[in-house]
Amino acid sequence: MGRAAAASDRFWRNVTLAPALALFVLLTALPLIELALLSFHDVDWAGGVSTWRSTGISHYVALAGDNLFRVSILNTLLFSAIAVTGEMVLGFFLALLTTSVGRGRTIYRTVFLLPILMPGIIIGAIWKLMYSFDFGVINEIVTLVGLTPRDWLGDSHFALASIIVVDIWHWTPFCFLLMLASLESLPDDVFEAAEIDGASYWQILRAITLPLMLPSILVTFVFRLILAFKVFDEVYLLTGGGPGTSTEVISFTIYRRFFTEDRVGYGAAMSVTTFVLIAILIVAVIALTRRRASTS
């Protein structure tokens, strides 16, 4: 390859990356750097002018003793773990079932994808009414089958579980979609060989399908986990973090500090800490799955 070609290559290499880099630097790096700086400051407003007052690491120190923050991290972990696991399992089995039937496949596929079309805020409103203690359809069904009606959103024993159910309803389709795509792209010949060898359905599933799908399961899991950690719209409309602190999730706590209370410095420290935690968690999840995959 000539020198001219190499120069031209380098030119195009830069040009093709430039737009993405520009968006990242301007619209993500700058705000995030500001956020990081903000976490060491307090911002005061007087006479329409802002002053940044350095606070050192005091926000981070305060964070360590903030009970609400701890509760919200725990709730978010619990929420994400249960919801995403539920979504993955359900999405996987729905995908298996859908690919295993001949007729009606397209219809099922379309129906199962519908929930991702709904904005979170509408989902919140619908489920709020369906969960209503006095006239919600869920309590009607519960009464119909002879159980006691509950205040699903107002009782701290059920509130988080109720939100998890909504999240599973909302996001299983996403996992379903990615699982389906992964299933359909598996090579047929392996399965044919296994069937000829007389392997049972479950044996094939365990020994062939799952290991082959592991990379895409992992990617979907991580992708969903990140989204689940950011859960906000539904909680906002359904419970507002209550009753007590039973549905206090991290996005919501940050939102309150940052916006409602206008403690931007403290809110920023919370954001930074949270995404360091998520990053650690995700690296751990990936490392763990990789290790298990390589040992089995």
């Binding site: 203690f133 205040d151 107002g154």
Partner: peptide
């Protein structure tokens, strides 16, 4: 029975 779960919306409803 579930006063702690009632919002303004619930109350007006």
């Amino acid at each position: 029975p579930s006063t702690a779960g009632q919002t303004q919306t619930n109350v007006i409803q």
